[in-house]
Design a protein around this nucleic acid. Structure first.
Lengths: 262, 262
DNA sequence: CGATGTCTTGACGCTTCTCAACGATCGTGG
DNA sequence: CCACGATCGTTGAGAAGCGTCAAGACATCG
């Protein structure tokens, strides 16, 4: 669950109220709701609740590390980076508030990639042993847990779909759409977000050169579809963005809404 | 486990002997070994053992289908295909004997893609409900199950690494290496396999045009690294193949082993 | 204020896609 | 038995998208 300050255990009711708010977007929320029934037990084990600050650039784990916990992002953002064979690193994913980090280790029991904080962040560390033993006592959670863990493979598959046979503008548009959707899911309101990653990270995630990403963003801006200033992003015409994400060769992408008065 | 013919239940010992051989490469083998202890129970539930033939071109499931079972490939091969947004389909993976099909549905409970038989095949259909209820009774299997299911995300991630910022020859070399490794794992002996998929499927999996794949294979053959004739593949120089997979721009790729005395 | 990191923009060349024709293989039917 | 079409694979030529190299703009920080 969340947010059990080190300082003793006092007002459970107040705790819950806080938890409900802060954990709203959490992927493990279902878990928490069911676990509430025996909250004291859960807390005693330290199952959920080890809230920890992580400074920008810090790593939660490195390749080869044993799987000890999975992490829920409470604030900030992380990237998962795999050391590629030829030295060049491969960016496998981003993790925004409400999402889980560390699922890559579930197969082998050891982490395949490293998780780096893109900004000062806060996490919940969820001990793997506690998670599995909780399941052992409440088998009804088995499917739910498998479901949550299976989500990791969903993410990778949608990543693949971004990469395969799509050209630069298409990938970039898809990426912006996805980031917007994910931030919305975590409670961010409108069509405006602050991208947590550098152009270089975006490029490596999208399988493009950094310059190509920069050019693509500029082009989208020239078309009046988005407004970018550094990492500040505003989507002005979500429909046009979706159109480019779906098919960049389609009918006119020349300033669809700039000539709405023309 | 496997191979419980519909015709009654007779010689358990003989069954096991057969099972051991045929299930050798199966990803769920650990499961079977532990489940053996109560084989009759497992069999009674039909948990493992629904061996079924599948004709080339048939589908095990379609996008949107409810997750009812996962499938272990016993012979033949399958591909997982996701219907992309713009009509063009996206090839997410291949499945050779010993591997599981259908893990894409674990997250949502519904299949995201379809599984198509690339050749006449045989499978074990493993009911999902039976799997989870078995775990409920033997919590020790929880981690193992999660591990197996987590493997699906591993596959996607290595797929991503094939696609990101690698050029055609590099991707093709990596792909051949991987297919060889996977067939070896399933018991195929040497450096010679029959590729189960068409050039077009390879191309869509690798994010390339089919002509590029064909050209790449020809180039590798001209270099004396492989020998391809249709879907028959022989790897003549595994070291050179690995070198290209790791770095195609590296030192001489001109017939590295033809001038090994130079 | 210079130094550093990050982002943008330009020019050029190469890889790969597209379009196209051709060859091989296989199953079908006359 | 051979002709035929269909499917699949190979090869070529041209165009274009994108990577690479390079220079410059902008912001942050010591």
């Amino acid at each position: 669950m969340a947010d059990v300050p080190g300082n003793g255990v006092s007002d459970s009711a107040a705790d819950f109220s806080l938890l409900r708010r802060t954990c709203e977007p959490c992927t493990l929320r279902d878990f928490c709701q069911r676990a509430e029934l025996k909250f004291e037990e859960v807390r005693r084990r330290g199952l959920f609740g080890r809230r920890e600050p992580v400074a920008r650039g810090e790593r939660l784990f490195r390749p080869g590390d044993e799987l000890k916990a999975v992490y829920m992002v409470r604030s900030g953002a992380f990237k998962s980076v795999a050391p590629a064979l030829d030295g060049e690193e491969c960016l496998l994913g981003f993790h925004v508030p409400g999402e889980l980090v560390g699922l890559d280790a579930l197969g082998s029991g050891r982490h395949q990639c490293e998780a780096v904080a893109l900004a000062d962040s806060q996490i919940c560390a969820i001990p793997y042993s506690g998670l599995t033993s909780l399941v052992a006592e409440a088998p009804g959670l088995t499917r739910r847990l498998i479901g949550v863990f299976g989500g990791g493979s969903q993410d990778s598959q949608s990543h693949v779909q971004m990469l395969v046979r799509r050209q630069a503008d298409e990938r970039i548009a898809m990426f912006l759409q996805e980031m917007l959707r994910r931030y919305r899911r975590s409670g961010e309101p409108g069509a405006q977000i602050t991208l947590p990653m550098s152009r270089e990270d975006m490029a490596r995630y999208l399988g493009l050169a950094l310059e190509t990403v920069s050019r693509g963003l500029s082009r989208l801006q020239d078309m009046g579809i988005i407004s970018v200033s550094g990492r500040q992003l505003v989507v002005l015409d979500a429909a046009a963005l979706a159109r480019i994400a779906a098919d960049p060769h389609g009918p006119d992408h020349d300033h669809p809404q700039m000539n709405r008065r023309a």
